[in-house]
């Protein structure tokens, strides 16, 4: 009696409103671009201010700055409004990752520090970390094998 009703599924595919892809892509493009420009501005500023620093250190400092700004914006409930407008534009950059760690932390603070905040902190970002670490290990193995084989 309750099998998937193909005719109905086809009907809702036709009748229900869909995302406006062009509009959302345009918004994601300009906001994502702006966030990256802000990042670049910090990089330029740090290169100018701390001329003795290496390229890697400047990049790390920029990342830390963006994460700190996002954490504060998330805490004040501003970043979710940016996200609602920007979509992928504010999810893809490092700021999106910071937001995905801070937002469950804020939300679960009420269930205590250990079982609430800490246990749920990576509930959204967890998969990214798992895939990030696993893929870096795999890539690392590939590098070692090929270096060994070709003496690179």
């Amino acid at each position: 009696m309750n099998e998937p009703n193909e005719a109905y599924l086809k009907l809702i595919k036709e009748k229900m409103p869909k995302s406006k892809h062009l509009l959302t892509m345009f918004r994601a493009f300009w906001t994502g671009g702006t966030i990256c420009c802000i990042g670049q501005a910090f990089t330029d500023l740090y290169t100018y201010l701390f001329s003795e620093m290496g390229e890697n250190d400047v990049a790390a400092l920029t990342t830390i700055t963006l994460i700190a700004i996002t954490a504060v914006l998330t805490g004040f409930g501003i970043y979710d409004k940016i996200g609602a407008y920007a979509g992928a534009g504010s999810i893809v950059p490092i700021t999106g990752f910071a937001n995905s760690v801070v937002s469950p932390a804020v939300e679960h603070k009420r269930e205590g520090v250990v079982f609430g905040l800490c246990a749920n902190m990576f509930s959204v970002a967890g998969p990214v970390i798992v895939f990030g670490i696993s893929s870096s290990v795999i890539v690392g193995f590939i590098v070692i094998i090929f270096r060994g084989a070709f003496g690179g």
């Binding site: 409103p17 998330t74 970043y79 996200g83 995905s100 937002s103």
Partner: peptide, 17 residues
């Protein structure tokens, strides 16, 4: 939101539906 979807402060987009 928390029960069925994501944390409130997560910057994601709601679908038009």
């Amino acid at each position: 939101e928390r029960q069925y979807r994501y944390p409130l402060e997560l910057g994601n987009q709601r679908t038009p539906l």
